[in-house]
Simulated scan of single mutants.
Amino acid sequence: MPKFLQRLHWLDYVILVVIAVFITAISLRIGGALNYNWRWDRIPNYILRWKESEGKWVANLLLQGLVTTIRVSIYAGILAVILGTALGMARCAKNLTIRLLARTYLEFLRNIPPVVIMFIFFFFLSEQLIVALNIESWARGIARQENNGMWEFFFGDMRRFPSLISGVIVLALFESAFVGEIVRAGIQSVPLGQREAARSIGMSGLQEMRYIVLPQAMKKVTPPMANQFITLVKDSSIISLISVQELTFKTVELVASTRMIFEAWIVTAGFYFIICFGLSLLFRRLER
C-alpha cells in the first residue's frame, strides 16, 4: 500500500476527493429530496442468512444469484469458445458455401439487438431442445435423489436446471458470434508464407490449421478473447429476461419484495465490478 500511495500524483488525490464529494451529494439528495430511508443494515442478511434448522450460514438471494451468474458465465464461455473457434475457422475456409453460412450467422447476430436475439434463441432453439431431450424430467429425477451433492455443486438446484441450460445455450450462441470474429482476425493475422511452407512439406489443410495457424493465432487473440469473456459476464444479466435466476433476476426479486432499490442495485453493481475487475487483473497476468 505505501508503494501504491507513492505513485499517486496530486491530481489523483483531487479526483478521489471529487468522486467522494459526488457520491456524498448523491446520497444526501436521495435521502433528502426523495425522502428515501437507507437500510444498509438489512443487506448482509440477503447475502448470507442463518438457517436455524441446520445451524449454519447459507446463501441468500444475492449470493445465490452471484453463484448462478458465475456458473452461467463459465459454462457459456467454454461453449462460446468452442463454437466461436469453429465459426472463425469456417470464415477462413476455402469452400465458399461454408464461408457464406458462417458469415451469415455472424452478421445476423452482430447486427441485431441482444435482447431480440435472446428471445429468438430461447423460444425457437433452446426451449425446443430442452423439450426434445426431455431434460426437465431428467433434472427433476436427479433432484429427488438423496445423493445429488455433486450435481448441485456444478449446477445448483436441479429443479432449475432447464432454465440454467437455456441461459447457457442462449448466451453462448450470442457470444460465439463475437468470438468467431476474433478467431477469424487471429487466423488471418498469421503470415501467408507460413501456411505456404506448411503445405510445401506435405501438411493437409487440417494439419496446417492445427499445428501452424491456430497456435500462433490463439496467442494473438488472447487479449481480445479475455475482454470478450468479461463482456460475457456483464451480458449474462440479459438472460434474466428469460427467467434464469442469476444475479440481476435475484436483485429484481429483492427490490420487489423489500423496496430497497438503491441498496440492492448498488450491491449488485459491486458484485459485477469485483468479478470483472478480478478477471481483468487475472487476464493481465495471463497476457504477460
Score class of each variant (00 low, 15 high):
V115I: 15
S27P: 01
I261C: 02
N95A: 01
C276V: 08
A217T: 06
E287C: 14
S176D: 04
W57A: 05
E52M: 09
L61Y: 06
Q216K: 10
I142N: 05
M158A: 03
I165N: 04
V58D: 07
M89I: 05
S73V: 00
L173E: 04
T68H: 02
K3M: 12
A25H: 11
V18K: 08
V14I: 15
A139I: 03
T97G: 05
E175S: 08
G55E: 13
R49M: 06
S126G: 04
K3E: 08
L16R: 05
L87T: 11
I82V: 09
I266A: 14
S236N: 08
E263N: 01
T251A: 15
W265T: 08
K250R: 09
S137D: 09
G31A: 04
P113C: 11
L63F: 13
S189H: 07
L106N: 01
E196R: 15
L28V: 15
R259M: 13
T222E: 03
L16P: 01
A269E: 03
R140D: 09
G149T: 12
S137T: 02
S176E: 00
T69C: 00
V14K: 14
P191G: 08
L232W: 07
E152P: 03
K51W: 10
R91V: 06
A185I: 11
Y211F: 04
K56H: 09
V244T: 03
Y13M: 14
L206I: 05
Y272V: 09
Y36I: 09
S204R: 14
W151F: 12
G32R: 06
Q228Y: 14
D235Q: 05
F262V: 09
N37W: 04
V255G: 05
F271Q: 02
L125K: 02
G65W: 02
T69Q: 01
L11K: 10
I26Q: 09
G202Y: 11
S189D: 03
V190D: 09
F155G: 05
I275M: 12
E52P: 01
F22G: 01
S204K: 06
V115P: 00
L62P: 02
L101R: 07
A132T: 11
G141K: 11
I239R: 02
L16N: 12
G55I: 06
R42E: 15
I238A: 06
